[in-house]
């Protein structure tokens, strides 16, 4: 059973997640006419900057986050930004969009100069997230849990971060049982995706280097 306090926590997270999204005028640009590889690169990097700003705004609303040590706040955001961005992007590929928009986006990313060896695991991740059919609450909580990972580099007070992450994990676990009563492994599967995310994060620096070189 989800307690009233847990419901309130979930509402704060979901409302913030929905409120802080990339502005539509930016996302619309992705669906416009043909671009060159260079323009795709510029557009995607502009979106990445936007995504980080949106991510920070979302994170500020996580109860207790702003009371953490300021440098720890930065360490958490720095350590999780890439993973949170992949999670958010995965949502685009797991939602049915009109008029083949998903295909247009995939094509644009594939033609942005990034190496195939990095592209394949990324799209595989998007598909594996898509196959889970997460509800909005799960998506928002999973993002918050990713950000509040205590063992990111340079985090000094890991226990303080754990104290914020644990209630989120507890709500998510309960939500999974309620939402997917026939899938007892669902919560474990969600956490498994976080491990996959860490792998993507690990290769991200190499990915960027190859992208710049190309």
């Amino acid at each position: 059973e989800i307690t009233k306090e847990q419901q309130a926590l979930m509402k704060v997270i979901v409302d913030a997640y929905n409120k802080h999204q990339i502005p539509q005028d930016v996302t619309k640009k992705l669906l416009q006419e043909q671009y060159s590889v260079e323009e795709n690169f510029l557009l995607l990097t502009e979106m990445a900057t936007n995504q980080v700003q949106v991510l920070v705004e979302f994170t500020k609303t996580i109860p207790g986050f702003l009371s953490l040590d300021h440098e720890d706040q930065i360490a958490l955001l720095k350590g999780s930004a890439v993973e949170a961005m992949f999670l958010r992007s995965a949502q685009v590929f797991s939602t049915k969009m009109p008029n083949g928009h998903t295909e247009v986006l995939e094509e644009r990313i594939r033609k942005s100069g990034m190496s195939e060896e990095f592209m394949t695991p990324m799209f595989n991740f998007y598909k594996s997230i898509g196959s889970l059919h997460m509800v909005q609450e799960e998506q928002a909580l999973l993002t918050a849990i990713t950000i509040l990972t205590p063992d990111r580099p340079y985090v000094k007070d890991q226990q303080a971060v754990e104290r914020l992450q644990e209630p989120m994990l507890d709500v998510l676990r309960k939500l999974c049982v309620l939402q997917h009563p026939k899938k007892p492994q669902y919560f474990a599967q969600l956490l498994g995706r976080l491990t996959e995310l860490r792998t993507l994060n690990h290769y991200h620096a190499e990915m960027l280097t190859s992208w710049r070189m190309n």
């Binding site: 690169f41 920070v56 930065i74 720095k78 930004a81």
Partner: peptide
Amino acid sequence: PGNSIGLEAIIRKALMGKYHD
């Protein structure tokens, strides 16, 4: 690219509520 600023700089500015510097 062009006006490349690092991830940390974007985060610090966003935490202070400064977006368009």
